[in-house]
């Protein structure tokens, strides 16, 4: 089971090369990749053609935010917002600058979320995609600010919002200011909702902590990728608290579906058309209402 505190563990070689954290396979070009779930060797090019989903067992490899945008947005339609915003060490937390620097290098991004506008099968939307390669998608003030601004832009321009979440939770190096992002983003989501606009969240592996306890769970429609780990507390924390092993598949997307907390588990290859369909279904209703007023 994925461990969302991986980003805090000592760096390994692969991560220094710009790859994934230790448990999660780095995917070099032109090679055979061993699927971490079924252990079958898969040709890297086959994996790429298959949306980075194992053709043998349907394991959805973690993917970078840019790649997710490529898979979701119509070609050339993505326009990034607030690309240059970047975190500072507001509470003087030891070694935070160093952590930020290495996160920037290993992810090639300025923060744990990319926001902007895009078209999905011709439907215009605001989109935010979190990035597990940047401090395990932890939520700092800039993460919260970019998401809040994305919501505010969508509210002002009557656009839907789609957020792909992946996060280990709050970013403790920003202390209480990180916690405040939960309230801030939730407030922005509420005003967007009160304006009658659509918000869809897509939970990807893993989504935990402060992100689960705020905007990830606030969508009108909550989708998830298969077998994603989704929870408030991480499995290790729970096991330490209750001093027993957790059942298999506890906190998986399918488990949450069964418990009634998500609307649907959607295969990566079907995600784009599903999102487009949902936007379209909401578009007709709201626009006609507005016109008839």
């Amino acid at each position: 089971m994925p461990d969302f505190f991986n980003f805090l563990k000592p760096k390994n070689e692969l991560e220094n090369q710009g790859g994934f954290a230790e448990n999660h396979p780095y995917i070099p070009e032109e090679l055979w990749i061993k699927c971490p779930v079924c252990k079958n060797a898969v040709l890297s090019s086959d994996l790429m053609d298959n949306h980075k989903v194992c053709p043998k067992c349907n394991y959805h490899f973690r993917i970078a935010a840019r790649q997710r945008i490529e898979m979701t947005a119509d070609e050339g339609s993505f326009e990034e917002m607030d690309a240059d915003m970047s975190s500072t060490n507001k509470i003087g937390f030891p070694d935070y600058e160093k952590k930020l620097r290495s996160a920037k290098i290993s992810s090639g991004e300025n923060e744990s979320v990319i926001t902007g506008t895009a078209e999905i099968c011709g439907e215009k939307t605001v989109i935010a995609v979190m990035n597990s390669q940047f401090m395990m998608g932890s939520m700092g003030t800039v993460t919260g600010e970019k998401i809040t601004k994305a919501f505010e832009y969508a509210t002002a321009n009557s656009l839907p919002v789609i957020i792909f979440t992946v996060s280990g939770g709050a970013r403790m190096q920003e202390g209480i200011l990180s916690l405040m992002q939960m309230a801030k983003t939730s407030g922005a989501a509420k005003l967007h909702s009160d304006a009658g606009l659509l918000y869809i969240t897509v939970l990807t592996d893993p989504t935990t902590g402060g992100v689960t306890a705020s905007f990830a769970m606030e969508g009108d429609i909550i989708l998830s990728e298969p077998r994603a780990l989704i929870g408030f507390a991480g499995p290790r924390v729970i096991e330490q608290t209750i001093r027993q092993k957790l059942p298999k598949d506890f906190q998986s997307a399918e488990f949450l579906l069964e418990k009634g907390f998500i609307d649907a588990v959607v295969q990566r290859k079907d995600m784009k058309k599903t999102l487009a369909k949902l936007i379209r279904l909401h578009k007709t209703e709201t626009k006609e209402e507005v016109r008839s007023e």
């Binding site: 059942p247 009634g260 907390f261």
Partner: peptide, 17 residues
Amino acid sequence: IGAEERGQGQAIAENLM
């Protein structure tokens, strides 16, 4: 276990909102 099964994250998120 119970807290997760009954949506601890969702409950907190709803309160914030």
